[in-house]
Amino acid sequence: MSGESGDKPPYVPNSAQRYGGADAKPAARAGLRNALRLDTRGQRRVRFRKRTWFLVVAATPLLFAAVGALVSGNAIGMATSLGLFAFFAFGAYLIRQGGEAEEAYLDRTYASPPATPRKLIGSLVLGAATAMTGLFGWDIGVIQSVGMGALAAGASVLTFGFDPLRAKGEISLSGVTPRMVEEAMTEAQERIEGIERAAADIVDAPLRDRLAKITARSRDILARIEQDPSDLRRARKFLKVYLDGALEATRKYARSQHDLGDSDMYLKFRSLLDDMQATFDQQHEKLLTNDRIDLDVEIDVLAERLNRETVLQ
């Protein structure tokens, strides 16, 4: 905007930022902040696995020390070296676990933070392991050991970053909190997985196909709702009634398919699935065109139908 030229900050040459002076500090601090920031672009993703391995490898001389102590008949020395190595490995393991939890968190649009900040705890464990190695293995005195431990812990935090600490996702105007979205998504996922498990037991291939289409479409709908959860309250009802209905019907059919053969029940179940598939397609279409889901009527219709047929009583 050209009208704001009067508010421009004073000119600072690039060289001042690069080579120090008061103006260099903000840039350096921003770099540090970025290094610690949550890894939203996946830069750390692949690397944290390799790096935790490197850490364990770097601690392997402790294993040789344990063997050396064993050879010279020093049982305490051996136990110390082994314990220290285990301590390092435990820290690396915690960081790895924390990294995996962070990946799962990043993959979702709405997520609560991991219950324990494992990366941070892992970094502290690494620091403590380093300090103890200095104290009991290297024998360099308390102050140096603690300093070295603090340096290691700090370097580890810088390398691997903090764990996600806040719930992710925005609170929408309609008062839907990220937690509500997350719960609804998890519940719906569980139901879809239940349908898939029950469908695996169904012998008839065309029925399995229909169910596969329904579950795939449900996932599309979930993804859509996750992107724009403003209508979650009603969408949740939709997910619950439809998916519960599909789950119940599929389970019942799978259980009694062999008793009834190609009877009336097969036809009923198939037509129910066809209807469901059509409805799911419609809902998805509506979500795509950003129509509010006109659920209530359809829910009633389907609920009534599920009750009437109860396919399957």
């Binding site: 540090l32 290094a35 770097a58 020395g77 293995g137 290691a152 370097a155 810088l158 390398t159």
Partner: peptide, 30 residues
Amino acid sequence: MNPRLIRTLAFVVLVGIVFVASCATFAQVG
């Protein structure tokens, strides 16, 4: 400073400390 560079440097420092401390422990025992 590039955050990636900071992370890499921090990692090198970390591995260096762990390795040196472990080696020193080995040397003490030896």
